[in-house]
Amino acid sequence: MSAAAAPNLVVATLTEYGGLTRAALGDYLQPREPRRHLYDLVADYPSRGGRMLRPTLCIATARAFGAGREDAVRTAVALELLHNAFLVHDDVEDESDERRGRPTLHALHGVPLAVNVGDALTLLGLRALMDNRLRLGPWLTMRILEEAERMARETVEGQAVELGWRRDNATELTEADYLQMVLKKTCWYTTIWPSRVGALIGTRSDRDLDRFLRFGFFLGAAFQIQDDLLNLLGDRARYGKEIDGDVWEGKRTVMLIHLLGAASPEEHARLADFLVRPRAAHEANEVQWIRERMDAHGSIEYARQMAHGLAGAALHEYGLLYAGLPDTRDKRFIDALVTWVLERA
């Protein structure tokens, strides 16, 4: 595949399968009572758009292994609902101000209602998974639910690790600590689970699903580091979140971990003092100073190269996983996705 064709294929596939997922998502987001304090709010984040990366990867993997599009669409819908549930709760936990270019749900409606909306989105995700029964049968439906339980467990464990770092003001973290956290918090629900359930639906067999751990880990970790880079360098309108928001929140990104390791003792003490305080107590000039130190110590370039290395490993693992499958558009999409995660703006 030519270098120019790859991004086009990714965008076209995201548009097609994303549209398919959105259409089915409507079944679960119909207006009903109580609207004002629940269901109108439940539909808010899903209606704000998003790239639909996770549902598309799920459908494409299922098709690469021989399934029809409709076989995977309820699972893709569940993924999107669970993703939005995580986002609502994440925004509360991170005290974030913006999500997809608009104020966060808790900023608009308060924390209690937002937390309840996150719970409702989780339950709707479970409903979508149970709705697989008629099309996929009881055995496959149950296996997908078991996989969903593991994914959710891994994700909350990863979230607990990251929240604990912030609460305890951890400043002696390594890249290995970061990768272990990202494996659980991001990779499981962004890339590992969509690949595993896609293969489960396509092959109708749960044999060797662990083969997808390595591919999903490397792809998801590269994706997360690039996402963190975009938080510092991205175009605000396209990124949809507050630029430098991660620095304001004291999020332990690769860039911050690198800076903490490279900083002089004086800089390190100043960083530790910044990180121990809550977001509301941070000043704009402090955030600017941290950004300047990241540039001065090469933390941005370090993270960029780390993302490239991990994406290279993802490409290798892709070759091992998919070499035996016929050359289909869905297989080519998964291949092209690896480089796309680094090139997206």
Partner: peptide, 23 residues
Amino acid sequence: LNDVVSRSVELGYRVIDEYIRQG
């Protein structure tokens, strides 16, 4: 190969292989 790139790949394999072994 860039030093950071190579070390990241090696570190990544260590993390995921240890995770799989634990599982």
